[in-house]
Design a binder for these strands. Structure first.
Lengths: 257, 257
DNA sequence: TTGTTGGTGTTGTACCAACAACTTCTATGT
DNA sequence: ACATAGAAGTTGTTGGTACAACACCAACAA
């Protein structure tokens, strides 16, 4: 039995969580390694299984461990950051790639994975946020193209694109089929060339719906990127909102001083 | 006693969480409203306090409710998004402001709030990630300037700046006192003018330490921005890692196509 | 008026017990 | 050899109890 420091006034389960966290970060328990069972930990640290579970809850919420009913608990293997670099800055040599930012497929296949998308198109009234970014009044009808994007048949991100209805009416964008040349190209063909983007990045915990749709594990937050595209006349022509699970993404920006 | 649907095969605590979630989203329980006590809920839904707590844990993790020992549980009031816009893109008119990106104080005071910083300076071996970005081998000693930044006496963010030791030795940067002109200016005076930044943005749940240092509520994820600065010779001169609580920040970027 | 005390109600911590659900492996039988 | 059944071990769920820690308020005393 390994005892915890009695001078420590923190709750037992927090002390236990800290001790176990150390065993992970110190390398005593390697990524992928099997964790001692709850019963083992309870007897090792001379406490109850209940308290052990409270400690494990904390580690689970930090994303350090994962549990599987019937199999055991394991140290999460090296952050599965599958790494999807999505956004470049303004350097000249990135221009060509940037023109194809909407072709999610290319980005994934460049990483040697198979991409798949499921799209739907709707016409809905704009909520306050979308309307503000498109510089219209709330409730104005807009076209929205909703996509679920998969890599290797695992859901990777959820993306909704909003367009003023008068711009995309009767265009390819209203067709749920994949737009292989990228929506930016379509917008350019319609006389609205995207020349500038404004990005807002926030992060929060997912709702239950999002957990189901994105196959999220516990303790995985969502990043949210809202990108507003402006055309050659500096008019907003698209609002793109994408939700990115924190265990699979890194956003990259390059900024000139 | 309000009973749950017996045909629902989900665990009781999940059904209960769903029922309570509905009462919040439907407006039955308004933001800021007091939640029924755990004992009340247990008798209302004819279950044990243990199960009620599991349900409340779920709602807490989603950020829907907050509990205070001795006072009760409350529906979280509208997100306090205090909004701290931190990062600009490359537009020419932003250049002047950009030169002062490190002067956190100015950004906060522009919002009519009072800023405060606590800084410490250490010399430590670089971990693998920092070393990679500074293009050195892991373990090389670097100077690190750690800051806790407050707005209106509430902690707002944690920022660590890493510098190659040979560049900042004997400079103002090694002094824990505030660098009013901004560290970029100091680096420029030392012959290394920052000309380009590379940003990596990720998000995850906080550790218990971070919860304490940043006064984080439950269910609030952390954003992490890692910015590498390059000088006029394209040499990395600084790695800045800042942790941003999700309920108080929005990151803004502007990108030219 | 002010301060203190104590009672009541709340959430937090810690323990115990039992069974369900699931995985893995072993033993058994065909 | 192969399939099946069952045992053993694991996490998940649900119930219970007791006390600690804290907030709030009313009653009382100085």
């Amino acid at each position: 039995m390994t005892s915890l420091n009695p001078a420590d006034s923190r709750p037992l389960y927090q002390q236990l969580a800290a001790a176990l966290r150390d065993r992970i970060t110190s390398g005593d328990l390697q990524p992928g390694a099997r964790f001692p069972s709850e019963a083992d930990l309870a007897s090792q640290y001379d406490t109850s299984r209940n308290t052990v579970r409270l400690a494990l809850d904390a580690l689970r919420n930090e994303g350090l461990i994962v549990s599987q009913q019937g199999r055991g608990t394991f140290v999460r293997s090296a952050p599965p950051t599958r790494y999807y670099a999505s956004l470049t800055g303004s350097r000249a040599q990135r221009l060509e790639a940037e023109r194809q930012r909407d072709t999610f497929t290319q980005q994934i296949e460049r990483q040697g994975r198979t991409a798949r998308q499921v799209s739907t198109v709707e016409v809905v009234p704009a909520d306050a946020e979308i309307a503000r970014h498109l510089n219209m009044s709330a409730g104005t009808t807009v076209a929205v193209r909703r996509r679920v994007m998969y890599a290797d048949n695992e859901p990777l991100q959820l993306g909704d694109s909003y367009y003023p209805i008068d711009i995309v009416q009767d265009s390819k964008i209203m067709n749920p089929a994949d737009v292989v040349e990228g929506t930016d190209q379509v917008l350019e063909d319609l006389g609205h060339t995207p020349t500038r983007y404004e990005d807002e990045i926030t992060w929060r915990m997912p709702t239950v719906d999002e957990v189901a749709k994105l196959h999220l594990g516990p303790g995985i937050p969502l990043g949210r990127l809202l990108r507003t595209s402006f055309d050659q006349n500096d008019l907003p022509i698209e609002v793109y909102v994408v939700l990115l699970p924190g265990d699979r993404h890194v956003l990259l920006y390059e900024v000139e001083a």
